[in-house]
Design a protein around this nucleic acid. Structure first.
Length: 210
DNA sequence: GGAGCGATGTCCT
DNA sequence: GGACATCGCTCCG
């Protein structure tokens, strides 16, 4: 076959709500290899999830739910399968997927993606030159939000299980190879828990740790 | 190629 | 006023 494997089906069915109605440490593994679709006026962007982190409930000191429900983290307490977007360090956004039933907080942080469709647009969104390798376009939580044009104002709270949504998650039966687990990156609390998951040896995994 | 650091929004005490 | 789940640029080896 000569067709690039990166071709994604035209109208794939989104992952069902039940997929996300589970503990974050389970959903974080299950999301590896799935595809994140971005629809923004006619343009479609697609990228495969290659790195995630699980953030648990109020008993996880590193989680945003650690100090209970607030205006910022309300999405974490809502139904599963919704986007939780927040800004960090004044410059970047991070994209999470809510897990567990409504009322029970928990989420999965998307840390790195492999660009599949709309690579030129992603480059443009990142403000990078044409020669920059695709593997560098979304290899970090802040980078992937910039590459897909995700902001808190526009995307926080979106339902990721709806085909009409500007953001959705789909399955193309991609088979993940070896999955590795390590401690989470960039946090100061609960640093020892092995809640970061990634595809072993994948070139799009974020810089630290392989 | 790794450590150090500055930029800087948003929420919370 | 401080914390923060980042990134990319320096400076140094």
């Amino acid at each position: 076959m000569n067709t690039p494997r990166s071709q994604v089906e035209e109208h794939p069915a989104p992952l069902p709500r039940s997929f996300f109605d589970a503990p974050p440490e389970f959903v974080a593994r299950a999301l590896l290899g799935k595809i994140l679709l971005r629809h923004s006026n006619k343009m479609r962007l697609a990228a495969r999830i290659v790195e995630t982190e699980a953030y648990l409930g109020e008993h996880d000191p590193a989680a945003h739910a650690a100090s209970g429900r607030t205006a910022r983290n309300a999405v974490l307490y809502g139904p599963p399968g919704h986007a939780y977007v927040y800004s960090i360090y004044g410059l970047h956004y991070c994209l999470n997927v809510s897990c567990l039933p409504a009322g029970v907080p928990g989420c999965v942080l998307l840390r790195a993606l492999e660009p599949l469709e709309g690579i030129g647009q992603m480059r443009q969104n990142r403000g990078l030159d044409a020669e920059v390798a695709p593997s560098l376009l979304a290899s970090g939580p802040g980078k992937l939000c910039q590459a897909l044009g995700i902001t808190r104002a526009a995307d926080n709270g979106l339902d990721l299980t709806s085909a009409d949504s500007p953001l959705s998650l789909v399955d193309d039966d991609f088979h993940c190879g070896e999955i590795r687990a390590t401690p989470r990156i960039g946090i100061r609390k609960a640093t020892e828990l092995p809640l970061r998951f990634f595809l072993a040896g994948h070139s799009c995994v974020s810089a630290r740790g392989r």
